Simulated assay, not measured.
Amino acid sequence: MANSTAPPISTQVAHPSPSFRLRSESLNSLRLRRVFDLFDRNGDGEITIEEICQALDRLGLGADPAELTSTVTAYIRPGAAGLAFDDFQSLHRTLGDALFGDPPSGGEAAEEEDMLEAFNVFDENGDGFISAKELQIVLDKLGLPDGQSIDRVHQMICSVDRDRDGLVDFSEFKHMMRTITVQSN
C-alpha cells in the first residue's frame, strides 16, 4: 500500500514517453509485470532500491540513489525489503498521475490504438503478423527465458493462433490481450 506521507514526485522529465501509461489496463499490467520481473534480478518477488538503481543504470537512466530512496521507501510495506508487485503498481500509478495527470481514457478507439502500438513492437518486419522468430527476438530483448527455446516460442504462438497458420495476426493478438489477467506473486 502506498503511504499517504509519500514525498512529492519530481515532474522534471523532459519529454516523457506517451506509452508510460497505456489506456488498456491489460496491456499496462502485462508490461508492468514484465518490467517488475526484469528489475527483480534475484527473483524473490520484491524489487529493492538497489535493484532499481542497477536496472536504471543498465538502461542508461542513472538516478540519484538518495532521491530514489526517499521516493521509493514510502511505497515499501513495513517489514519488507523492497517493493512487491502491488507496491510497484502503486508507485507507477503515482508517477503517471504526477507526470501526465488523470489516467488516459478514450474508449475502444484509444484501446485499439494502444494494442496496435504493442502489436507493432512484436511485428518487427511490419507484415501484419507476429512470427515465432519475431516473438523470440522480442522475448530475448526483454531478457525472458522463454525466448531461449524456439520450441517454447512455437508453443506460445500455437496457444493464441486461432486460424492455425503459425502466425499471430492483430485480431488474435487483441483476443489474447483482452483475456490476459496478470497475477502478482
Rank of each mutant, 00 (worst) to 15 (best):
M1F: 07
A2I: 06
A2C: 02
N3P: 01
A6E: 10
P7Q: 08
P8T: 07
P8A: 10
I9F: 09
S10A: 10
V13E: 07
A14T: 12
A14C: 03
A14H: 09
H15C: 06
L22A: 01
R23F: 00
L27C: 11
N28E: 13
S29M: 14
R33Y: 06
F36L: 02
D37Y: 00
L38N: 03
F39I: 14
F39N: 04
F39C: 11
F39M: 14
D40T: 04
D40A: 07
R41Q: 13
N42H: 08
N42D: 15
T48F: 08
E50K: 15
I52D: 00
I52R: 07
C53D: 11
C53I: 15
Q54Y: 12
A55R: 04
L56N: 05
D57E: 12
L59N: 11
G60Y: 06
L61G: 01
D64W: 03
E67R: 15
L68N: 08
L68G: 08
T71D: 01
V72Y: 09
T73H: 09
A74V: 06
A80R: 14
A81N: 13
G82S: 02
L83Y: 04
A84I: 00
F85E: 01
D86C: 00
D86N: 12
D87R: 02
S90G: 13
L91M: 05
H92Y: 11
R93M: 12
L95T: 14
L95I: 15
L95K: 14
G96M: 09
G96D: 10
D97P: 00
L99Y: 11
D102F: 05
P103E: 15
P104V: 14
S105R: 15
G106V: 06
A109Q: 14
E111M: 13
A118Q: 06
F119I: 09
F119Y: 09
E124N: 12
N125C: 01
N125T: 05
G126R: 10
G126T: 11
G126L: 06
D127Y: 06
D127V: 10
D127P: 04
A132H: 02
A132D: 06
A132Q: 01
K133S: 13
E134T: 10
L135M: 15
Q136L: 00
I137E: 10
D140S: 14
L144Y: 00
L144S: 03
L144M: 08
P145W: 01
G147H: 08
S149Y: 01
I150S: 06
V153C: 02
V153R: 08
Q155R: 06
M156E: 04
M156H: 02
M156W: 03
M156K: 01
M156V: 05
I157G: 03
I157Y: 05
C158F: 04
C158W: 03
C158E: 13
S159Y: 01
R162H: 12
R164F: 07
G166E: 07
G166D: 10
S171Q: 15
F173W: 11
F173L: 08
K174M: 01
H175P: 00
H175D: 07
T181D: 02
Q183K: 13
